[in-house]
Design a protein around this nucleic acid. Sequence first.
DNA 1: CGTATTATTGACCACTTTCAAAGTGAGTGG
DNA 2: CCACTCACTTTGAAAGTGGTCAATAATACG
Lengths: 189, 189
Amino acid sequence: MSFVASIVTGVAKLEKMSEDGRTQTLGLMLPSDFIGRPGRDFAVYDVTAVSDITLCCFARSQFETMLETTPHIATRMLSMALDELDAVRDWLFLLGRKTAREKVATFLLLVQRRSEAFDAEGKPTLDHITLPLARSEIADYLGLTIETVSRQMSALKADGLIEVVGKRGVNLLNLPQLRAETGDTHRQL
Amino acid sequence: MSFVASIVTGVAKLEKMSEDGRTQTLGLMLPSDFIGRPGRDFAVYDVTAVSDITLCCFARSQFETMLETTPHIATRMLSMALDELDAVRDWLFLLGRKTAREKVATFLLLVQRRSEAFDAEGKPTLDHITLPLARSEIADYLGLTIETVSRQMSALKADGLIEVVGKRGVNLLNLPQLRAETGDTHRQL
DNA sequence: CGTATTATTGACCACTTTCAAAGTGAGTGG
DNA sequence: CCACTCACTTTGAAAGTGGTCAATAATACG
């Protein structure tokens, strides 16, 4: 890695795969997210584009110089890293302690919350989302199998909480109930 | 939180608990680790001492000023945050994709690798470690139950990989095999 | 010692996975 | 325009890993 970059448009994912093929997605990367690690010349994890992507790239060495000469940038990068750290820590709880149903409900609401970032023309609204990932990618993100994701979606549908529209569309029919199913604190933020 | 701090001696843990009592430990905090979030006046997660602790505290406002006036500190904090981010991302893989046995093996080797940091007088050596956590705390860290942790320890003992000495002591009898059981890349670093 | 706490073990159960098959849908070429 | 194909998704049945509940054992502490 001789450069670092910032995502301008599109979605990518960060992932780690073991030798035997097990894959865990470590996070989704959206516009304004940062790729690469200043001060390190190799990549520890894989970055894969999920859609067409536009990047804003910097030569790593130049970026590192900039970090040292422009104090403002370092504090900004620090703030971004700490926010990312919090997001990843929430995901630790999801992977370690949530049930499959809670994981899927959490994912659907995550997509809703960030829907503007995911999609330009999919026309997401409060109660309709366009999934940025295929089932197998959702499974890798949630620490599940593709079958379990599919079954939980069907179960949520059977319970009247969602409606599945083709492969990528989902209507959220009962947001309050869906939030209650995430396993998160019920208190509004 | 009106202050931030750095751990001087002792071990603490960062954790998140849901309303129904499920707990996930988000990370262990060792000497030199940083507590608190500059630029935020509330705590998102709980920090709990695991042993007696010595902290080096700073008033948060003063620390924030220092961040802005001393560029070096921001880059140092950034580097620490990015290292922490990598560690947490490895844990995502552990929680999402590893088996109970792999989780326990990983934990034992983690304790070995950082044994100097965990314990002053426990006299840890290459093949003997003193666990910094009780079984229930290990369970919360690995996303398991206490019974499963206990069973996996017994299984590793039955397989001749470890020896359990009292509640906190473990002899690592076969390090190469134990490493192979972590589910991580077999290649040496 | 006796007591309280923590750890281990056992039996059973449930959730998720695995393996397998059928269904759906988008794109291609006749 | 319509079958055909391929990839993805859904569904089903069986198995397995880890969880739950309960009892026993070990350890620490007064």
